[in-house]
């Protein structure tokens, strides 16, 4: 394995990182939107969200990305591998994020809503100033957990031809007939990224346990 090969894996790492970041940045607010639709019990849309979340949570990302990449052209939309990959990540993570947001919305104390109403706050103001800041804080550990899961599923995008870390490593292994060294370089790329997310989640959980302790 040459220096150029290591560079090829690192350029794959850039793809992995920006696609994960984009998937998280787009999927998180969509998840919040879906959770709000359920929370507000919007007719028709509410049950649709329930079905969407249940279905997407049960779908393996590899099956989803194959479906998106190969079936969208049948509907007249041709997608590049990167676009199909990103769309699948967003579909997948928004369903999981919806569950995290919904759990903290459900555990939001009712008396605070009543208090906000009693001082004359409107719906939007109440949500923006009272609900959102606290719900964001309560959701953080779950959201960070979902981020680490997302990073760990990105190698799947290689099946439609996205050249990220794992695919770059497989290609080098096939060329040099020595698959282990490039795989270990790939592993060395993932470990610190996921480790930072996992330990952030642990720290957040500990901090929350302390702040809710009597």
């Amino acid at each position: 394995m040459s220096f150029a090969d290591v560079l090829a894996i690192l350029s794959g790492a850039l793809t992995t990182i920006w696609m994960s970041a984009a998937g998280i940045a787009i999927g998180m607010p969509i998840g919040l939107g879906l959770a709000l639709i359920r929370w507000a019990r919007v007719p028709i849309a509410g049950p649709l969200v329930i079905t969407y979340v249940s279905l997407l949570r049960a779908t393996p990302l590899v099956t989803l990305v194959l479906l998106v990449f190969f079936a969208m052209p049948q509907l007249g939309v041709t997608l590049e591998p990167i676009q199909a990959g990103l769309l699948s990540l967003v579909l997948n993570t928004s369903a999981f994020n919806c569950e995290v947001w919904r759990a903290s919305l459900l555990s939001f104390p009712k008396d605070q809503m009543e208090a906000a109403k009693s001082v004359g706050m409107g719906r939007v103001l109440r949500f923006r100033r009272i609900v959102l800041p606290q719900v964001v804080r309560a959701s953080l550990p779950g959201l960070v957990n979902e981020m680490s899961l997302l990073v760990k599923t990105t190698p799947v995008l290689a099946v439609v031809g996205v050249v990220e870390v794992t695919r770059a490593a497989v290609r080098i292994g096939a060329e040099t007939y020595e698959p282990l060294p490039p795989f270990f370089v790939a592993l060395a790329v993932y470990l610190p990224i996921v480790f930072v997310l996992v330990s952030t989640q642990r720290r957040l959980e500990r901090r929350m346990a302390r702040s809710t302790a009597p």
Partner: peptide, 18 residues
């Protein structure tokens, strides 16, 4: 910790090809 930080697909590749 190692398993929690490793993507499953990469582990499958390591076992099968590596």
């Amino acid at each position: 910790d190692l398993m929690r930080c490793t993507p499953f697909l990469l582990l499958a590749y390591i076992v099968y090809y590596g």
